[in-house]
Design a binder for these strands. Structure first.
Ligand SMILES: [Mn+2]
Ligand SMILES: [Mn+2]
Ligand SMILES: [Mn+2]
Ligand SMILES: [Mn+2]
Lengths: 230, 230
DNA sequence: CACCAAATTTAGTCTAACCTAAATATTGAT
DNA sequence: ATCAATATTTAGGTTAGACTAAATTTGGTG
């Protein structure tokens, strides 16, 4: 199909896709932080990616980048590989949910379309990875997903955990130990304005858990409206 | 354990291991041909690999290379990855035996020891890949394997197919279509000295098959001594 | 035993992707 | 509006791994 892209280019596009989902554009420094390279390296790479034919991103000096449709397509292919692989490692090979991200980060660049379609079949055309993130469909449509951050909720509000950022393995082990996993129901019991801590009762758990903002920022939820009490 | 090696280095060591199994040393040109790079590139790389601490191979100008024990250990790790992956793709994901080599050639460099041990468990600690090649054990001992080439056999001699070189997908499809697969029993019916053709009756097959030397050179067998007829 | 063809090495380039240090642009606070 | 802090770009350099073209070594043959 397309001429081969390097792993580095694929990682840039994947990260830029993520960053531009939240904000409108991705800045040099944000990209550099996410990829653990220097801002100078990012400037060099994005200039190159903006100069390809067709361009993979649109770049304005000092103003960051957005992906072009071509760049977005490639980003979605890689994200599909990544999330399918995570689920495959989790379901078929018995990995725990804190181990899959690192392995998928390397495998995503080397599997063939054949491999992709074989594991899709084994997994039954799945729509979500082990952290609740949506898997782009085979024709690269990204399913809609929860954007409400747990950090925004306040006491008495209820909901279900939808997805959890998967970059930090230690955080994932902590959350798993407390039952904070996709589909878990919860109610907010308390909020501390000073430190931003939230106390949560997870459904079916013996005791509540207290989560700081560094944690709640990584978790996305769906609200369940309280039954109206007159 | 060891500081990361590049994919290129791993491919050099893997190929050099293969070449030195047949002959004593691997020449620059042989390595270049196998890796599809120029001889000049090979000279550059082997000088570097001979100069590492500890050296991964022993190099004499104009005289080719042999692996050191350290180089051989790395080669065996990669070969173990490769053959386990081939079997995994074949058994678990349903690949055909002509598709697995190309996919494993890319995956072998990126899977973790975790991945290796998970698929080892799924496959039940296997000893042979889909082409009959031996899989080095977890502590990197290479099982013994057939070294008798089918090309050497002559009429009336019988044996079983043990392994088939896996680099050429088209050849593998051809052999599969004629039942020339590991463990198949056969008897040589005829030999043509002029063109080197062998006519083989494969056990359980309706008709004999004629194989030229380009093919029989790729196949290794075990003899079965004929029952003594007085 | 000298010479030629083949194999191999040397020398000089190239690209991809990273880096550091220095220069410059942007922005928000006075 | 000014200026310092921050963000970004430029300039110059490194490493890995490849290439081509030009030397050089080797080994077999006349
Ligand atoms: Mn990656
Ligand atoms: Mn994930
Ligand atoms: Mn390889
Ligand atoms: Mn094989």
């Amino acid at each position: 199909m397309r001429d081969e892209l390097t792993h580095a280019v694929e990682d840039y596009l994947k990260i830029i896709y993520d960053l531009t989902q939240s904000q409108g554009r991705a800045s040099t420094t944000q990209i550099a932080t996410a990829l653990e390279v220097t801002p100078a390296s990012v400037t060099g790479m994005i200039k190159k990616l903006a100069a390809t034919c067709p361009p993979l991103l649109e770049y304005q000096r000092h103003r960051g980048v957005v992906l072009t449709p071509e760049g977005e397509k490639i980003a979605l292919e890689i994200i599909r590989h990544h999330r399918l692989l995570e689920l495959f490692l989790y379901e078929t090979l018995g990995y725990s949910w804190d181990e899959v991200d690192a392995e998928a980060d390397r495998l995503e660049h080397v599997i063939s379309e054949e491999f992709e379609s074989r594991i899709t079949a084994v997994l039954g055309d799945p729509t979500h990875d082990p952290h609740g993130d949506p898997i782009p469909s085979p024709d690269l449509e990204m399913p809609s997903h929860a954007t409400l951050c747990l950090r925004e909720l306040r006491p008495k509000q209820s909901g279900t955990i939808q997805r959890v950022r998967d970059g930090d393995a230690e955080l994932l082990r902590f959350l798993h130990a407390h039952g904070v996993v996709p589909q878990a129901g919860f109610t907010v019991l308390a909020y501390e304005p000073f430190d931003g801590n939230l106390t949560l009762q997870i459904e079916g758990r013996p005791a509540p858990v207290v989560l700081g903002p560094r944690v709640t920022r990584q978790i996305f939820v769906e609200r369940i409206e309280e039954e109206q009490i007159p």
